[in-house]
Amino acid sequence: MNKNYHLADWLDNKKSDDTLSGIQGMDTLKKIKQYSAQFEKPKFSKDEVFRQIKNKQNAKKSKAINWSVAASVLVILGVTSLAFLFSVKDVTSQIDSQQHVVLPDNSKVILAEDSKFKFNNWFWNFDRTAKLSGLAYFEVEKGKTFTVKTDFGTVQVLGTRFQVLSRDSIFKVVCYEGSVQVKFEGEENVLKKGQFITYHNRLIFEQSNVYGEKPSWVSKTHHFENVSLSEVMQELEKEYSIEVDILKVTENKRFTGTLPSDDLSLALEILNKTYQMNYTIINENKFIFVDNVQP
């Protein structure tokens, strides 16, 4: 189908006005042709647009450079973080046993039962930061700041011996040597040797003194300082889940000393010697003490 578009040809000056005589509205068509040629071209900021194109070209170029920089940074970051991730050590103690960890700088950590300790093996000498949940005793070598993070607060030391407990809603820090800085909810406290601090439900619960060189669960001993026999016995009852009867014993002196917390018969033997008494075993868990009558 080869249709002829006379009007189109006429508009394009390929046909004269005469060839279209007889077409409806020729007057109007002529005017359309005449006036439509009088329109101005739309405004176009030719130079300005070119300038913007140049700007964008440059932006793209520098973007390209940035991308390559960004890419290498990403690669480096990726490798480092992989190394970081792979060198993170996760130590979890069993529910019924303690675990000893020696850090790269020879600092020692003793994890109590059912505790979790996390540190970075490779980066340890740059950043002595570890994470703890549960109970642990630390003997830190002198050096850069040593940080223990817990769910509740942060403990910072330079080199000392201390214990951190972070479990349930309790956060407790005990200092056994030197000084320990405890950060909790924006509050800072410094503990000196023999002091401890406990936060319970985000409130300071108690802050007082302890005796002994190490926590009893670490040294497997219990240290007593000038306490009555009944107090010692109360502790033993708690520690070994036993029942003790000392009603028949003459309490004549106070006790200062260390008792093992993992050897009941030895502990009882020591007390027997100290107080010159004897005990009768009623059953596995019950002991009755009487004064040892010298023959």
Binding site: K3, L7, A8, D9, L11, G25, T28, I32
Partner: peptide, 16 residues
């Protein structure tokens, strides 16, 4: 060409 033709026709019709 067809578009031009149609355009002219529509313009004329609308103006008239």
């Amino acid at each position: 060409e067809k578009r031009m033709q149609k355009a002219l026709e529509s313009l004329r019709e609308e103006i008239d």
